[in-house]
């Protein structure tokens, strides 16, 4: 019974969100840039560059012991693919979750469809859970698909490239299967929170910067070698975000009441 309702919501929300053609754009552009063009670009560039052209800053970055033996081009490729890239990659779950949740939650209010749902026998807390799931599940699946595309590019690169490509599988898996879902949920709940105040989808969408900003800072931090994230750090970050999500979820669920939704 419940799962049927969740399924109905997911199907309906996907149709509603993607019925608006403009929304397709980020869902095509994000994976194409982050999972195809950029990684392929780095791999190709590393094959055509000379050691001397590698930026001095790269040489300074402290790499784990086992990578000290890499030559500069390999180091360049390792750093770009596995330290700068992860923070870029995390934009995928965040952006997709916030777009779907934004259209889902603000859209229901903006288009006065929320009241229609409230007249059905489905309880308010079930509606809330269904809405969260219907934003979360597609964005996580989308992230996984993007990741598969990214890995295919990496493995093709590995086969063709003359520069050795090292792929830290554990780190990537932690990132994709643990940290990404955590961030996707955070983005969904964050959108629920701001959509309570925001009158339009655009307004709500702009606030997502608050989640993206820390990521960009971490990304820059990595490039300049201030800190390098390893699997353990990513895992702990995931735990922290999930804990934060738990409280945020409770808070949002409590403020998800008909009286506030229909006025």
């Amino acid at each position: 019974m419940k799962s049927l309702i969740y399924k109905a919501f997911i199907k309906k929300d996907l149709k509603t969100v993607f019925g608006d053609k403009i929304i397709y754009l980020p869902f095509i552009i994000l994976p194409v840039i982050f999972c195809v063009i950029l990684p392929a670009g780095f791999i190709i560039a590393s094959n055509f560059m000379s050691d001397a052209s590698v930026n001095d800053n790269f040489k300074e970055i402290p790499l784990p012991e086992e990578f000290q033996s890499l030559n500069l081009r390999e180091k360049f490729l390792y750093l770009s693919l596995n330290t700068i890239f992860p923070s870029l990659f995390l934009l995928i779950p965040i952006m997709s979750a916030s777009i779907i949740a934004g259209t889902g939650f603000v859209g229901e209010k903006e288009n006065k469809t929320i009241e229609s749902i409230l007249y059905t026998p489905v309880s308010v807390s079930e509606i809330f859970k269904a809405k969260v799931l219907s934003a979360l599940i597609p964005s996580i699946l989308f992230t996984f698909v993007s990741f598969i595309i990214f890995f295919i590019i990496l493995f093709i690169g590995k086969a063709l490239s003359s520069v050795e490509i090292i792929i830290p599988v554990v780190k990537w898996f932690t990132l994709v299967f643990w940290l990404s879902p955590a961030l996707a949920l955070l983005a969904v709940l964050f959108m629920v929170l701001v959509s309570a105040k925001a009158k339009t989808f655009q307004q709500a969408q702009q606030r997502i910067v608050y989640i993206i900003l820390p990521l960009i800072i971490i990304g820059i931090g990595q490039i300049s070698g201030i800190f390098i994230l390893n699997s353990l750090v990513l895992f702990i970050a995931g735990i922290l975000i999930f804990t934060c999500n738990y409280f945020l979820f409770k808070f949002c669920e409590q403020s998800f009441v008909p009286e506030k939704l229909i006025t």
Partner: peptide, 11 residues
């Protein structure tokens, strides 16, 4: 039936 309970436009 009320004017404030609408349908999904794209369905």
């Amino acid at each position: 039936v009320t004017d404030t309970a609408e349908f999904y436009d794209y369905l």
